[in-house]
C-alpha cells in the first residue's frame, strides 16, 4: 500500500487542510506571508501541496514552486516552520510517526525550489 493510500488519500487531505492552514496562519514566524492572499485560493494551493507531500497525484513542478515563492525572500527558518506545522497537523490527526517522517522527507525534497537556490 502506498503512503497516500495508507494515510487515507483525498479524505486525509480534506481533513488536514483546515488544521494545517490554521496552524500556518497562527504562526507569527510565517503568518504575514498570507496577509494579502485570497484565502480560498490559498486553501486550494495547500490542498495541492498536501496531496503532493502525502505522495498523491499532483501537478506540482519545481518550476511552479520556484515561481510561486521567488518574490518572498524565504529562509530556512520559514521553511522549517512550515514543516513543523505540517508535522503538528499530522500528529493531531493520529498519523503514525514513520509516515510523518516519510511525508517530511517528501516536503524536504522541494526545499531548494521553494528557497530559490
Amino acid at each position: 500500500m502506498s503512503l497516500y493510500e495508507r494515510i487515507g488519500g483525498a479524505a486525509a487531505v480534506e481533513a488536514a487542510v483546515d488544521i494545517f492552514y490554521r496552524k500556518v496562519l497562527s504562526d507569527d514566524l510565517i503568518s504575514h506571508f498570507f496577509d494579502t492572499v485570497d484565502m480560498d485560493a490559498q486553501a486550494a494551493k495547500q490542498k495541492a501541496f498536501l496531496t503532493m507531500v502525502f505522495g498523491g497525484p499532483n501537478q506540482y513542478s519545481g518550476k511552479d514552486l520556484r515561481e510561486g515563492h521567488k518574490h518572498m525572500a524565504l529562509t530556512e527558518l520559514h521553511f522549517d516552520a512550515v514543516i513543523e506545522n505540517l508535522a503538528g497537523t499530522l500528529q493531531e490527526l493520529g498519523v503514525a510517526q514513520t509516515d510523518i517522517n516519510e511525508i517530511a522527507a517528501i516536503a524536504g525534497s522541494v526545499k531548494d525550489d521553494v528557497l530559490n537556490r
Binding site: 487542510v17 483546515d18 492552514y21 490554521r22 496562519l25 497562527s26 484565502m39 480560498d40 486553501a43
Partner: peptide, 17 residues
C-alpha cells in the same frame, strides 16, 4: 478578508465559509 480569517481561526472550516 479580516472577518474571514478571524472566523476560520476560531474553528469554522474553509469549505463552510
Amino acid at each position: 478578508r479580516k472577518m474571514k480569517k478571524q472566523i476560520f481561526l476560531s474553528g469554522a472550516s474553509m469549505a463552510d465559509i
